[in-house]
């Protein structure tokens, strides 16, 4: 029987899911909660709540201090602030940044490979523009 995990902040309910195991940092140290755990009320330290689902998936939620209540396999984490790590587009944003960098590199390489003649032509154009501006 899974544990129903609810993480509630003053702004909204961050997560309400069924998990087979929940690992949290309490004032007494890190504890893992499995189904049929003894009823418990504990102070939570700033840290993370790690949930493992029945299908093996993991979910991590960063939490601030608060209180945990566990009874009848229903774990409630009442915290002041929480951020679901899955929602942070960390991996995707890193990928995106990498892709952008590579693109940029490619395009600069293309520009750097301008032929000598073309370069001279450009330079001449810029000079003539400058001269025009100066004479005005």
């Amino acid at each position: 029987m899974p544990i129903r995990v609810e993480i509630v902040t003053p702004n909204r309910v961050i997560c309400s899911e069924e998990a087979v195991s929940l690992v949290v940092d309490t004032a007494m140290g890190e504890i893992e909660i499995l189904p049929m755990h003894r009823p418990l009320i504990a102070l939570l330290e700033v840290g993370s709540a790690r949930l493992r689902m029945a299908n093996g998936a993991q979910k991590t939620v960063a939490i601030s201090s608060g209180i945990l209540k566990l009874e009848h396999d229903r774990a409630i984490l009442v915290v002041e602030e929480a951020v679901s790590m899955g929602k942070l587009p960390l991996a995707s944003s890193v990928e995106e940044a990498r892709r952008l960098a590579q693109n940029a590199l490619k395009t600069t390489v293309v520009q750097g490979n301008l032929e000598q003649g073309e370069l001279e032509c450009l330079e001449a154009k810029i000079r003539s523009e400058l001269a025009k501006k100066l004479t005005k």
């Binding site: 309490t26 004032a27 003894r38 009823p39 418990l40 009320i41 102070l43 009874e71």
Partner: peptide, 12 residues
């Protein structure tokens, strides 16, 4: 919200 008969553990 019935009480669990095993009694609550308060930490710390």
């Amino acid at each position: 919200f019935q009480r669990d008969p095993r009694g609550l553990l308060w930490e710390p």
